[in-house]
């Protein structure tokens, strides 16, 4: 009971307050839908769980050995009807939440593009030890530990890793996806409000992991265009040599940008570790298969 109230209290305060950052304060359609599923499923289950907890405490208290008024029924050890009920209640719950799971898994599948009249932009994200590199292949620029995207525009990510596994995660915009060397995962998101969000690596990746977070600046399209223009005019160029320098382990790197990016750099990073990726593409479906 106590933890029931506590859980309710926690979820209640965070939702009503609405001022927390993170999963409960979504700023894009994907994260919003994911929060909705979270709330719906919690509601469905609380409807079962709270009565169970109340009943447990009530039954245990009423049938305490010292209670003379409670009837002792040592032979009450089987009841076909109750067994029916006992199996069907959790089954019904699972049927409900299972449907929610099924729909959610398809609708919000990370590789699925977001339908929109605005043309989406493509970003390639690479996790390095211990920083993030974001390449804008269509725009020919790149940035480190800092992500800039236009508001209201679908963003389509391709992600890989230089070595160890990380997880790309911007809680207020979409769920996370792993980055793994030698393969590509995909993620789509859209930000509906021009603010700054927190992005991070969610999967432990070694010594510098705690500093593997970055800001996501969401700005109006015209400011985004300005940002691209100014980025193109300053900073180093990203080619295989500067990439090799960048890939060396380093911690808490201050964000900076590259004014140009060598073509196909992302693919060469992905394949550099792999002479043959057939097996991988075979065993892991959609997102990777698309790559072949």
């Amino acid at each position: 009971m106590r933890n029931g109230l506590l859980a309710l209290f926690l979820i209640g305060t965070s939702m009503l307050g609405g001022c927390t950052e993170g999963v409960l304060d979504p700023k894009g359609p994907i994260a919003f839908a994911e929060r909705q599923i979270l709330i719906n499923a919690t509601g469905i289950m609380l409807a079962i769980v709270i009565p169970v907890v109340v009943a447990t405490l009530g039954v245990a208290f009423w049938f305490r050995a010292s209670n003379e008024r409670a009837r002792y029924r040592p032979d009450f050890v089987y009841s076909g009807r109750l067994e029916m009920l006992v199996w069907s209640i959790p089954l019904m719950t699972v049927l409900l939440t299972g449907t929610v799971a099924w729909i959610g898994a398809y609708d919000l599948d990370p590789p699925k593009p977001i339908a929109s009249s605005t043309k989406s932009i493509k970003i390639q994200a690479i996790s390095l030890d211990w920083k993030w590199l974001f390449i804008y292949p269509e725009l020919g620029v790149a940035s480190v530990n800092h992500l800039t995207i236009p508001v209201g525009t679908p963003v389509s990510f391709e992600l890989t890793s230089s070595g160890v596994m990380n997880s790309f995660f911007v809680p207020q915009l979409a769920g996370q996806i792993y980055t793994m060397a030698g393969m590509v995962t995909r993620l789509n998101l859209r930000a509906d409000y021009a603010e700054t969000y927190r992005g991070l690596s969610a999967n432990f990746s070694g010594e510098g992991f705690a500093d593997m977070h970055f800001n996501v600046d969401v700005m109006p399209p015209e400011r985004f265009a300005q940002w691209i223009a100014s980025t193109r005019s300053v900073g180093p160029a990203l080619d295989s040599k500067t990439y090799a320098d960048l890939a060396r382990p380093s911690t808490a790197v201050t964000p900076f940008t590259f004014q140009s990016v060598a073509p196909n750099l992302f693919d060469s990073i992905r394949t550099s570790s792999m002479q043959s990726d057939d097996a991988l593409c075979r065993s892991y479906s959609t997102s990777m298969r698309a790559e072949k």
Binding site: M274, Q275, S276, D277, D278, A279, L280, R282, S283
Partner: peptide, 9 residues
Amino acid sequence: AVLAKATAG
């Protein structure tokens, strides 16, 4: 079975 084709050249 997973690695059978991963002959790495």
